[in-house]
Design a protein around this nucleic acid. Structure first.
Lengths: 202, 202
DNA sequence: TTGTCCAGAATGAACGGTCATTCAATATAA
DNA sequence: TTATATTGAATGACCGTTCATTCTGGACAA
C-alpha cells in the first residue's frame, strides 16, 4: 500500500501543476493553499505530506519552471547558417515563452527573485549556467571560424537574454500590440552583433 | 485647522514615499500596513484618512512610479547626432533605472500588472503613451530627412522599450555581472535599426 | 475464497497567528 | 469651544499549518 518512488514523484508533479495554474491566475502570494487544494483535488493535509510548506512549493515550482525554459531553449530548430541559428534561438525562445503563456510566471519569478533570497539563488544559478552555455556556443563558432563577435561574448549573451525576457514580460502590458512581425527587427539587431566570415576570403 | 489642498497632497506623497521604501524591500503583498505606518511615522487610522485602502496606495504608487519613469526618459541629455540621441535614450533610461534601484519595483509592477486589472490598465495606458511619443519622435526625424527606419516604427519602439525593461529586471538575477560596458553593444544593436542619411547625398 | 487487520494515504475541521480596516478616544490648532 | 487631525487598540476575516479521524487496499490466516 505504500506509494512507490515513482508515484510520489507523480503526486508531487500533480501538485506543482495545480500550483502553477493558481500562480498564473493570482501570483504566488495571492494563491492560498485552499486554491491549490481545490485545483489539485486534494486535501490540505495531504499536500503537506508531499511538501513541507507553501514556500517549498514555490521554490520547487521555480526550479521546475526554469528547467522547462532550459529545455525549451535547447529545442530550437537548428539552422545550417550560424547567424540564423542565433537569430532563431532569440526569436524562438521569446515566441515559445509567449505562446505558452509564460509571461505572467516569468514576471512573477523576477519579482519574487527581487526579495526572496532562495528564489533569487535558484534563478541566479540558472542564469549563470545559461550564460555560460551560450558563451560556450559562441566561442565554439569563433574557434571554427564561422563567426566573429563584435563585442564581449558575455555581454552579448546577457543582453540577448535580457531582450528575450523583456519581450516576454512586455507582452503583459501591451495586450493589443501585434508582435508577430517582430522577427525581421530581431534579426537586424542580433545580426549586427556578429560578423559572418565570408568563405571567399579563405 | 483644516489642511490645505497642498498639505493634503504633501501628506499623500509622504505616505507614498514610505510605501515605496517598503515595496522595494518586500514587494506589494508582503508589505503590511504596519510597515507603511512605521516607515511614515504615522498611525494606521491616519493613513486611512488619505487612502481608502492598501489597494489604492498600490495603485497610486504605480501611477507615480510610471510618472517618474516618464520624466526620467525626457531628461536624457540631447545629442546633435540623432542616432546617438536614440542610443543615449535607450542607454540612459536603462542605467538610470538601474542606478535608482528601480529593478525590483519594475519587476513587481510587471508581476502585479499580470494579475491585477487596475494596475494593468495603468501600465497599459502609460505604455501606449510612451510608444506613441517615441514613434512620433522617429516620425519627425524621418520627416526631416535626418534618419530612416529599417522597420516599422512601432515595432522598433516596442522592442527597444522591451530591451530596456529586460536589462533592468535582469539586474535582479545577475547580481555579480558587470554591465558598465554595455553601451557599445547597445549602440551596435540600436544603430542597426536605422540608416543615417548622409548629407553628401543631397 | 472470505474475513480480519493494519500501515499508510487522505480528509477537513480547528488552531494560532497575521493583517487590513475601523472606531472610540485624544490631541491640536484656530 | 469646536472642528479637524491623529492615535492605536480592537475587530473580524483570512490563511498556512496541524492533527485527530476516516478511508483504502493488500497481507494473511482460516
Amino acid at each position: 500500500m505504500k506509494l512507490s518512488e515513482q508515484k510520489i514523484v507523480d503526486k508531487k508533479l500533480e501538485i506543482l501543476e495545480a500550483a502553477q495554474a493558481c500562480f498564473v491566475r493570482k501570483g504566488f502570494h495571492n494563491t492560498t493553499m485552499q486554491d491549490i487544494c481545490q485545483q489539485a483535488g486534494m486535501s490540505a493535509g495531504n499536500i503537506y505530506r508531499y511538501f513541507d510548506s507553501k514556500e517549498v512549493i514555490i521554490e520547487a515550482f521555480a526550479a521546475d519552471e526554469l528547467q522547462w525554459m532550459s529545455t525549451a531553449i535547447n529545442d530550437v530548430p537548428s539552422s545550417p547558417d550560424m547567424l540564423q541559428a542565433i537569430v532563431d534561438t532569440v526569436y524562438w525562445t521569446a515566441t515559445t515563452l509567449m505562446e505558452n503563456d509564460k509571461s505572467e510566471l516569468i514576471a512573477e519569478l523576477f519579482a519574487e527573485a527581487g526579495r526572496n533570497p532562495r528564489i533569487n539563488a535558484i534563478y541566479t544559478k540558472f542564469n549563470k549556467q545559461l550564460t555560460q552555455q551560450a558563451c560556450g556556443m559562441l566561442q565554439e563558432l569563433e574557434d571554427n571560424d564561422l563567426l566573429r563577435c563584435q563585442h564581449d561574448k558575455q555581454l552579448i549573451t546577457r543582453i540577448l537574454i535580457s531582450l528575450v525576457d523583456g519581450l516576454v514580460v512586455n507582452e503583459i502590458v501591451c495586450p493589443d500590440f501585434d508582435m508577430t512581425n517582430m522577427r525581421p527587427v530581431i534579426e537586424t539587431m542580433v545580426t549586427s552583433l556578429f560578423v559572418p566570415i565570408d568563405p571567399k576570403v579563405n
